[in-house]
């Protein structure tokens, strides 16, 4: 049975078996390779996408569960340039191999939208489901705090 959904603002239909992991539909059927299948057991967070606005590990989500949902992948996060968190990560020289960042960015975008002024521990806790093997996290945490700091500046 085909699955209808909205992906990055466009109506899409997957012909795959309903139990196919969403990540495989996104990558193999829709050619959106930004989300990465790294652990395929929901631990690393590299495949995180937004499903109806919620960060979701697409490796453990059968495509049927995304039926009639609004799916946003890293490719659809911004239509004009980098978002604040992406800019801060770029400026902060945070990126190394880069495989974890599509998922990191999705998680942090959602987190910063819902927690406008987080402290360091809150950022660290928000990253529990997103593993990075290269960077040792510090610059990612700093970038998230810088986004929050920039917002505070903007309000003054």
């Amino acid at each position: 049975m085909p699955t209808d959904m909205t992906v990055n603002g466009e109506a899409r239909t997957s012909a795959r078996d309903p139990l196919t992991p969403l990540i495989d539909v996104l990558r193999d059927e829709f050619h959106l390779t930004g989300a990465k299948p790294v652990c395929r057991e929901g631990f690393c967070g590299a495949c995180t996408v937004l499903v109806d606005g919620e960060p979701t590990v697409s490796c453990l989500t059968p495509v049927a569960m995304a039926g009639d949902c609004d799916v946003v992948t890293i490719e659809g996060l911004s239509s004009c340039g980098l978002t604040d968190i992406q800019s801060r990560l770029e400026q902060g020289d945070a990126v190394q191999c880069g495989m974890c960042f599509p998922g990191m960015v999705m998680t942090l975008s959602h987190f910063l939208a819902h927690t406008p002024q987080p402290n360091r521990d809150e950022v660290r806790a928000a990253l529990t489901g997103n593993i990075c093997r290269c960077t040792g996290y510090e610059r990612i945490v700093e970038a998230a705090l810088a986004v929050a700091g920039g917002r505070a500046e903007g309000r003054r």
Partner: peptide
């Protein structure tokens, strides 16, 4: 600053698995 950061942050980098 590294020139590959932007593509890596926007999911455009095509690794071998991609």
């Amino acid at each position: 600053r590294r020139r590959d950061a932007r593509d890596k942050l926007t999911g455009r980098t095509r690794y071998t698995i991609d």
